[in-house]
């Protein structure tokens, strides 16, 4: 099946079978190694991506779900100032996700901050309720996301 979609701001034309999951398509065929699926049933959250700005778990979608749509992954965030906001917030609040789950945590944080720059703790925990990695202290993570929102507010305001 031929697909045309936007991946991290670039138009991509690729081919995949109808039985391929989106995570496998992105990871194996397009080489996006930031996706770390460890459950393949939407429990670990390590394959989170933004599909038209909305956070989804790519292991739960077929590859062809991207047809005509726009995808943002960790690779599309790391070279932006948005990434700096998030990492600075995490660092300030001692939220240290391991290298395995960090990309997903960044993507989920980005999705939170795209909807509000002043999230509450409940909102943050709700957004992360579909992720699992005991490396993370969720208290600190929630504070880190809120702090990241502060950084981004300040940056956008100063502009």
């Amino acid at each position: 099946m031929k697909l045309r979609f936007t991946l991290n701001g670039r138009t991509i034309e690729a081919e995949t079978s109808t039985s391929t999951r989106l995570v496998d398509f992105l990871r194996r065929e397009l080489g996006l190694q930031s996706l770390h699926p460890s459950c393949y049933d939407g429990q670990c959250g390590n394959c989170a991506i933004l599909l038209d700005g909305e956070m989804v778990y790519s292991c739960l979608l077929p590859g062809f779900a991207v047809q005509g749509r726009s995808i943002t992954t960790y690779e599309g965030i790391i070279d932006t100032l948005d990434y700096n906001d998030i990492i600075s917030g995490f660092h300030d609040e001692q939220a240290y996700p391991c290298t395995y789950c960090l990309p997903a945590k960044i993507v989920i944080t980005q999705s939170i901050l795209e909807s509000t720059l002043d999230p509450g703790q409940q909102e943050v925990l709700e957004a992360f309720s579909g992720t699992y990695c005991p490396c993370t202290n969720f208290h600190n993570l929630a504070r880190g996301v809120i702090r990241a929102g502060e950084y981004r507010r300040r940056r956008l305001h100063e502009r």
Binding site: L30, Q33, T99
Partner: peptide, 16 residues
């Protein structure tokens, strides 16, 4: 080493 792994800026996982 599959292109894209580098962005993680960390030691690579075995499935890469």
């Amino acid at each position: 080493i599959i292109e894209g792994a580098r962005v993680l800026n960390s030691q690579r996982f075995i499935d890469e």
